[in-house]
């Protein structure tokens, strides 16, 4: 391949391992795929839904957990001075309400009906104490309807970036 001398010594040796290498690759690929599919399929759950959390009963009390659902419309109360945010999270089927208390300003997109994931603990008093609030956005992107104004998030972000 390079010079005639090198080519004549390398060429026969290069042909032999072909089938072995391909077989090795196939086995590795299959093993890797099996591991990914078999082991991770049911275990990788980033958050529990309200129904799942409630179904756990006392087992779920006061252990670190992530709760994910929708902000129930009309339940949001926000105390600006105390930075105290309270709202209810419901499952997508509208059942399984859990009260959530969160400290600090919520992300800009937090509003009624928005998907959220809260990191924290479910207290014995049936209030979920959230230490971190993450927005779970849907895959929908829409232009504002006639007369509707788009959110100007980047502007309000700059204003409130200190908090």
């Amino acid at each position: 391949m390079t010079s005639p001398e090198l080519g004549s010594t390398l060429a026969p040796a290069k042909k032999r391992p072909k089938a072995g290498i391909i077989a090795m690759v196939v086995v590795l690929v299959a093993a890797f795929g099996w591991l990914m599919m078999g082991n991770l399929d049911k275990n990788v759950v980033f958050f529990l839904t309200p129904n799942e959390l409630l179904a756990k009963g006392t087992e779920a009390i006061d252990v670190p957990v992530r709760l994910g659902g929708q902000v129930k419309a009309g339940t949001v109360t926000w105390d600006e001075k105390a930075l105290d945010l309270r709202f209810d999270v419901v499952d997508t089927d509208g059942k399984g309400t859990i009260h959530v208390q969160s400290k600090g300003a919520p992300p800009q997109m937090f509003r009624d009906g928005m998907g959220v994931v809260c990191e924290g603990r479910f207290g014995a008093d049936s209030v979920f104490q959230s230490t971190m609030l993450i927005i779970k956005h849907s895959n929908e992107y829409r232009a504002p309807k006639a007369g509707e104004k788009p959110q100007e998030m980047y502007k309000s972000l700059m204003k409130g970036s200190g908090s």
Binding site: Y141, R142, A143, P144, P150, Q151, E152, Y154
Partner: peptide
């Protein structure tokens, strides 16, 4: 147009 939830983001 900007998105109704996200704006120009």
């Amino acid at each position: 147009p900007p998105d109704r939830d996200m704006g120009d983001l």
